[in-house]
Design a protein around this nucleic acid. Structure first.
Lengths: 204, 204
DNA sequence: ATATAGTTTAACCACTTGGTTAACAAAGGT
DNA sequence: ACCTTTGTTAACCAAGTGGTTAAACTATAT
């Protein structure tokens, strides 16, 4: 409905496609709806992107290329585990509050087509756990954190940060929060989650 | 394709519909495909369930009625927070390993149609946090656990337990695990997650 | 046996879907 | 000016979509 003007057609289409695909998913989206939102003829979608599948892939890769760097910061920098967790939790949550559809879009579409991730894995910049694992091993040896499997720790960090954006309708219902309460709740998690994780792993 | 015989038609349809809807979602599922899997004529779907929407709702309610009791155990029993967490983590993960599509199906469809949860909320047996909150407050007062917002704790528990079933393709790719490794990984979480949470909240 | 009600099917229908086409307009180079 | 390339549109198309129908089959009661 609302069309964002003043851009060249190709970018216009990509923006509209982002909007529709990310809210409705591949299966729930219609080419006509994307064309309408872009304010152009449906044939233009095919002129620039050939098919729904290719247009979708353009949107998906674009979305994933926003998520991956978020993960890489925690994985590849040289700070302590504690700092990694603190920074990641604040940064990731702040970022996702600006792009609330991103996590569900990526998770949902990866579940729909598991082959998709294979292509992404070949890309440079795909998240790699090597350095993170070394750092965890090092800090366990130093005694600053308790023994824990690095994969488990990584998944825990991810889970605590991503889940509020995936399970929002369920959480809102169970905890009886309206949109505003929920926003406050998620904001509090920026520090609450970091504290929680650090308490769980730091040596007492 | 594979049809499970020896049941009355209505149940046959519901089983096929479960199978298709839970793997492909409402938008990605076709009535013809459900009919094929049930081994019956497509008209029978409408004979017994009137429309795709109603058939879907039958499947969804059925699925949610499996999930809700899982949550209620942790919320409504009288055991200590520590025992709640230990039991829930083992029980929930074991249950979901048998029904791996359930979490993504429910989360995805709740995101697709946020109104849906309103109907569910009216149902008796919809998860309620009252007793859990009281228990958390009590243990904080007693000093057995550190001060923490009960909603945050609840979401943390949920996140750590559910996320591995939502983000499986992503986690598998990042942690470089095949199907078998992943199964082992999730199995280890039955105790690892409980320990993690308890470490995070117990008073030192 | 025969009527009655419930069950099942093949064929059909209107509409939507992704995608194509042919004609046309705009721009750019010569 | 003229031609070629690029961008854009309305109209169209075949395949698929959820849903309906009328006829046939099955069982059960009378």
């Amino acid at each position: 409905m609302t069309k964002t003007k003043d851009k060249n057609t190709e970018e216009q289409i990509l923006n509209a496609a982002k909007n529709i695909f990310q809210t409705k998913g591949m299966d729930g989206s219609r080419m006509q709806e994307i064309a309408d939102k872009a304010g152009i003829n449906k044939a233009m979608l095919h002129y620039y992107y050939r098919s729904k599948q290719l247009l979708f892939e353009a949107v998906f890769k674009n979305a994933f290329s926003l998520l991956a760097p978020q993960l890489n910061t925690i994985l590849n920098d040289d700070s302590s585990i504690e700092d990694k967790i603190k920074n990641f939790t604040v940064d990731y949550t702040s970022f996702m509050m600006k792009h609330p559809y991103l996590p569900k879009f990526i998770i949902q579409e990866l579940n729909r087509n598991e082959d998709f991730i294979k292509k992404l894995k070949e890309n440079a910049g795909f998240p790699n756990l090597k350095k993170f694992k070394e750092k965890v091993a090092e800090e366990i040896k130093l005694g600053t954190i308790k023994p824990i499997d690095a994969d488990q720790l990584f998944v825990n960090i991810l889970a605590l940060n991503i889940f509020p954006f995936l399970g929002k309708p369920l959480i809102k219902a169970i905890t009886n929060k309206d949109e505003n309460n929920y926003k406050t709740f998620v904001n509090q998690r920026k520090t609450a989650v970091a504290d929680f994780i650090i308490n769980a792993i730091k040596t007492s």
